[in-house]
Design a protein around this nucleic acid. Structure first.
Lengths: 141, 141
DNA sequence: GTGGTTGCAAACCCTTTGCACGGCA
DNA sequence: TGCCGTGCAAAGGGTTTGCAACCAC
């Protein structure tokens, strides 16, 4: 997932958000990160080019991006938040041996689940989104 | 889910854990809670009968219970941890309007997913557990 | 008896907040 | 220019830790 700075700029202004160097840098960092970065990962990554960014700013920007649906939080069982720049429906592989969380995109699975829940309504609950967490381990190298 | 104190006592000693009033009370609180309690919920519940329990103790006991697979952490996008006493494979309904997380047990879905992933191996990843997060909203009363 | 548990309080760390300054539109 | 966004530092709150006292086995 690699967007040019120009594309990122457009994403921000489409949402009516002011385009600032901090927001560009944070979105860029999330997009470039193969994994699902924590706030700390993002801060560290950005500081190489932008040493003066404040941690508070990063959290505020992330909140703004989430509110504007440019970024999602990833559900984990750890106590630090992780962020994800992929917006289309996708799933996650959680490695129980490490802290790696990989994206898993599988449209066939999405179709299967859509069909399944079309025929198996849950009484009193309206489904918006179905996310599968696959927990296991990556092969050792 | 209602276990007698005697059953809870057995669960602990089967794992080689010392049976203490605190551990009994905490497991009992989790089992009795219909929802998925936070540490704070548990502390509050227990204090009615056991006013002297320390917060630190509750966290330590929870960690021990998780290590011994008597309790699970629930993945959320919030910054407080929640705990779950159901051990068999099950899924969760996340309400986007409230903080309610309900259990969703569906063996037919489990079978469907088991078949699906039997035929769709993920290269380099060994699946141990498949958990579905259903995000949406409960009907208003 | 004795090693694992608990209570307590302080430390920790991630995250949030308040406010004055700064910079995008 | 006006107002949103940022930097800074302090506060906040859930969780962890260290250690002495305790108690289940």
């Amino acid at each position: 997932m690699n967007f040019s700075i120009e594309e990122i700029r457009n994403k921000l202004s489409e949402k009516g958000l002011k385009v600032t160097p901090q927001r560009l840098a944070i979105l860029d960092a999330i997009y470039r990160s193969g994994d699902h970065p924590t706030a700390e990962n993002i801060i560290e990554y950005i500081r190489h080019r932008n040493p003066n960014i404040a941690a508070g700013t990063v959290y505020k920007v992330l909140e703004t991006l989430i509110e504007n649906k440019l970024v999602k939080k990833v559900y984990t069982d750890k106590d630090v938040m992780r962020y994800d720049g992929i917006l289309e429906n996708h799933h996650h592989l959680y490695c129980t041996d490490s802290d790696i969380i990989k994206d898993y995109i599988d449209e066939e699975l999405d179709d299967l689940l859509r069909d399944y829940f079309k025929n198996h309504k849950i009484k009193g609950f309206n489904i918006n989104e179905v996310v599968v967490q696959l927990k296991g381990s990556f092969d050792k190298p």
